[in-house]
């Protein structure tokens, strides 16, 4: 088990390096620091000096990959790539391009509002999806199942944008149940959190229920279910004991990968509801074309994804007795 985890972590290193190089390529080579300076300073004030100044202030005044003016190790270290990308490897995100803010600090501060939205969506969402999926699976072949599936497909076919806009309009403006957007610290956050959470759950319920239902039905078709029925177990027990525990294997492992992302926030939701989380942090950076932040978030996302993959593998061993990791 331990060797397995170590191997997985070691395997993650080349991937993280790959992401690092890829993002560096995208951000520094294709869009050079000069371009960035021009974009940020603005078309009007461009002078070569202004660009140089900006680059010096923000640490972009070095060669990209190799610094031929230096000697020894410095050939590699005194470069934009090393100065700006290598620290990402030990999770030092540096400072933002525009406001010169400490990105690590921002992330630490903003991940909690993101979590406050994402965690309830995640937990309640799984519960709701499972419940409905078991319900339609239990009544498989009946009209309840048929219409349940149709409803799922219909709900899947509606854009998230409409759920958000419609939800805000109906619950916020017409019924005035919740504030349309905004955020507050501590307990006061609750009233701001409800609406995005409800909408977040509704958005995913269609595809979620349908997927879980498929998993259930696949399990129901297995031989061991027939054995359980032949024992004389009731249909509820067959489904909820034998079926559920087996169905939980693919379900659990499919959701585990997203656990690390709970901190990461959702661009769309946080933007619409003005939640000061990492999602809106990112979207603001995009709009301001602050590449230091975008790069950091890309990198953070990759690491969370890899952590998610490792967690997924570990969760397999916990729920499935057949799998023992070497």
């Amino acid at each position: 088990m331990l060797t397995y985890i170590i191997r997985r972590v070691l395997y993650a290193i080349p991937i993280i390096l790959g992401v690092n190089i890829l993002t560096a390529l995208l951000f520094f080579y294709v869009n050079t620091p000069d371009d960035m300076a021009r974009q940020i300073i603005g078309e009007k004030n461009i002078t070569p000096e202004a660009i140089e100044n900006w680059k010096r202030d923000h640490g972009y005044n070095l060669p990209l990959l190799l610094n031929t003016e230096e000697e020894g190790l410095s050939v590699v270290t005194q470069t934009i790539f090393f100065q700006r990308s290598a620290p990402l490897l030990w999770l030092d995100f540096g400072r933002s391009d525009r406001k010169n803010a400490d990105i690590n600090n921002e992330i630490r501060k903003r991940m909690w509002p993101s979590l406050a939205i994402a965690l309830p969506i995640f937990l309640i969402g799984i519960f709701v999806n499972l419940t409905f999926a078991m319900l339609v699976a239990f009544f498989r072949g009946t009209y309840l199942d048929l219409w349940g599936v149709i409803l799922c497909v219909v709900m899947m076919s509606v854009s998230t944008l409409f759920y958000i806009i419609g939800g805000q309009y109906v619950f916020g403006r017409v019924l005035k149940l919740f504030p349309i957007s905004g955020y507050d610290v501590g307990v006061h956050a609750a009233k701001f959190v409800v609406l995005p959470v409800v909408i977040g759950i509704i958005t995913a319920v269609g595809s979620g229920v349908r997927f879980y239902r498929t998993v259930f039905l696949e399990e129901i078709g297995k031989d061991y279910i027939r054995t359980a029925r032949a024992k004389g177990l009731s249909e509820t027990k067959v489904l909820f004991k034998h079926g559920l525990k087996n169905a939980m294997i693919p379900i659990l492992t499919s959701v585990v990968v997203s656990i690390p992302f709970l901190f990461y926030g959702s661009l769309l939701m946080e933007n619409f509801f003005a939640v000061p989380g990492l999602g809106s942090f990112t979207i603001e950076a995009i709009q301001a074309q602050d590449f230091a932040i975008v790069r950091s978030m890309v990198y953070l996302g990759s690491i969370l994804y890899i952590v998610g993959l490792i967690l997924t593998d570990i969760s397999y061993t916990l729920v499935d007795p057949r799998i023992r990791l070497e």
Binding site: Y224, R226, T227, H242, N246, V319, P321
Partner: peptide
């Protein structure tokens, strides 16, 4: 009671 052809799949793997 009944037993089946495929003993490999007829038992529930998680119990």
């Amino acid at each position: 009671s009944m037993i089946f052809q495929e003993p490999m799949t007829s038992l529930n793997p998680v119990f």
